[in-house]
Design a protein around this nucleic acid. Sequence first.
DNA 1: GCCCTCACG
DNA 2: GACGTACGTGAGGGCT
Length: 929
Amino acid sequence: MSFGKGARLHLIDGSAYIFRAYHALPPLTRKSDGLPVGAVAGFSNMLWKYILDQQGSEAPTHVAVIFDHSSKTFRNAIYPEYKANRPDLPEDLQPQFPLTRDATRAFNIACIETEGYEADDIIAALACKARDAGGQVTIVSSDKDLMQLIGNGVTMLDPMKNKLIGPDEVIEKFGVGPDRVVDVQALAGDSVDNVPGAPGIGIKTAAQLINEYGDLETLLARAGEIKQPKRRQTLIDNAEQIRISKRLVELDCDTPLDFTLESLEVKEPEAEALLKFLSEMEFRTLTNRVAEKLGAEAPAVVSAPPSDAPAAPEQPGIDTSLYQNTTDRAALDQWIADIRNIGYVAIDTETTSLDEMQAELVGISLSTAPGMATYIPVGHVAGGDDLFGQTQRVDGQMDLAEVLAALKPVLEDPAILKIGQNLKYDWKILARHGITMAPIADTMLMSYALNAGTHNHGMDELAERYLGHKTIPIKDLIGSGKSQINFGQVSLDKAGRYAAEDADVTLRLYQHFAPMLPTERVTTVYQTLERPMVPVLGQMEMSGIRIDGDTLKRMSNAFAQKMAQLEDEIYELAGEKFNVGSPKQLGEILFEKMGMAGGKQGKTGAFSTSADVLEDLAVEHDLPARVLDWRQIAKLKSTYTDALPTYVNPDTGRVHTSYSIAGAQTGRLASTDPNLQNIPVRSEEGRRIREAFVATPGHKLVSLDYSQIELRILAHVADIPALKQAFRDGVDIHAMTASQMFNVPVEGMDPMIRRQAKAINFGVIYGISGFGLSRNLRIPRAEAQAFIDTYFQRFPEIRAYMDRTVEDAKRDGSVRTLFGRRINTPGINQSGPAAGGARRAAINAPIQGAAADIIRRAMIRMPDAIAHLPAKMLLQVHDELVFEVEDGAVDDLINVARDVMENAAEPAVKLSVPLVVDAGQGMNWAEAH
DNA sequence: GCCCTCACG
DNA sequence: GACGTACGTGAGGGCT
């Protein structure tokens, strides 16, 4: 078909796709040969999504993907420094460029690049040509440099947000219409492309000037009339540079094209060629999706390495032929003999629930060598669909008590190592049956010591990564959702294969990780900070904490009433009923119906209604103020007063949280089901929820928490004399900071000043930025930046520490705490926005991590230290430990526990600042804290 | 299953 | 090339 009226041409900015894809995805490699393909994968996915999105009546008639050509362009002749400050391409991206061209052709889309021109030039020329021929043009890109082309039948489409960009959006961004965009860009310059522009003039000022004078040439001609002296001089001095800048950003229609518009006609993908490409790339999921859509058979995606491939990692595959269920005493005794002989065993328990405090043990699997594994079923019942809900025990199983009695000596034998994955789970299950497993090894914790920051440490992930083995998904056995059954209802056959595999995989992981601990220098971390946490946390979790359900119930009722009342007021103010809990509906009411200013839309196009935003609005309006009140109460009710009682264990009458040891990247614990590390305390109303965490009669709750532990660690590791001395003198650290920064005496200090210093102190720990501090303190960004500059001036050691830490991270790919804990920093050498986050995380990790190490050390020593007291350690909240202790022993407990906590760093590390622990006690957690 | 919001250190 | 932007978490409700 000839190109003319009615034709719709889509021009896809291929290079933008590639960079998006590259930065959005982890560095994937092709399994068979290690070829980096992450960007190609993302690129292909985006193209496929684009094709699916363009199926309607507005579908394009012509389409092309345009790429930058990897050579200098004519712009470098105009200005040699053009794009000179671009960082080098990542090593693993370069080889993917040709593959993205292959991908484009595989999708049967025209693929265009021209020596000496940027993609933008070709897009401009094509857009002009198509427009002149009477067609409609859509540029699929969000690149602001292309916005000058908008208008007269040319629009842009942001592929990520699937949002059209027209003249209005251009005005929003540049303050001028598309025809004046280049003028603004010429003035403002562009640091990314190294377009110089006029120094000191940004987009805002540029738009203002252009709007005032009409266009760039008029402005430059009449620059002498500008009132502001500095601005006037800048324009006069830099006129030539500004004109060069304009030529750099300007796109014209004259780029030579050696093909016709007709040749870009949309063609259906050819299933065979496309699927061949995708399967060769080994994109399993996409291959299957595309095959399904095109109604073709997906070719098998094989990733077997070519026979002559050199360093391809060995992928043994797991031979399951020797797995066998153990169902009689003789067979069990044989296994026990083998275990005693070899001195270790990998073990896994299968139960009816993920809640260790309620789970029923239904089987145990053991492994003594790769491929050598067994499952001992003890509690399986006939299928779950029995009409009368009766459970019929399945034949061919040993008696639970007999099995446990036979295994107990082995599991408690100090000469036999018990290896598990997330062994705290199994440790607790067995503890409930009177077996205290020791000694132990935990592959999850080994991976955590080695790989924190790189990936998570669940068995499925570890098996795939390190053994090249996909484990049987639990869903295949128990299903999911409503029809889910428990493991006890799984057939012995299936259960045996699954359970034996788990033990087998665990043993293989152990053999993989064990030799790496010393070579990676994390043995001490694993042995002193990870492994010992298993019995300590197991015991704490089993102890649980008592909760007063009646108090919570009363609070819930009061909250419900208050919410109803607020809802009435809110509806009245809004003039209609709506769901106050829906940010979407609320945003529409506030910013559309009521027309309040300050509506900011996020990437999903929804208005933000966060507390920040509502607080600003609440200054002038009642409705947002009411919503804030409602939100606070709704949160307290749903997350705490309503939810907590559902976690009370019917047998113990207490709440048993679960701590993940390897959940957080920094060494902190995380609490789940329920999370008892985020019980309210900051607001008066919220704090009352802590009144429902109560001591058993005759007991008290005691809370001990480290004072300013992270700042103390910072003072030590960054070696800041002023800070260290302040901690030794026991002075108010934030007041001291304020005094040093603003040259004011500590006596009679304005609380506002102290508050600002406090915010900066915290900011430093988090890898401070002017933006963040300004938002936190609600002050102008420049002011915040000035604070930070002053701070660094007064405490130059902090800057040095930050620089040093980032350098370490870049060099080693990881940072370490004082105690040797390694936190990997895989994103640190990236460029772009992710780098900022990675940098701050790297700065924070050694500080947060060392604090986590210290409280771990205290917790590990605690059980022995308080063994002589009628006291139990119940909870950890990052820098706080909560105990339950008999009334008469409160003071003793405080003395002992404080001593353990304050000296927890030693002897491994001798801190140059004291650690200080504050203590409180009471009938409930609110009083104790 | 993702997003938004908000609770904690 | 734009994107967000103080670090680390988990949970509940809305919405697709």
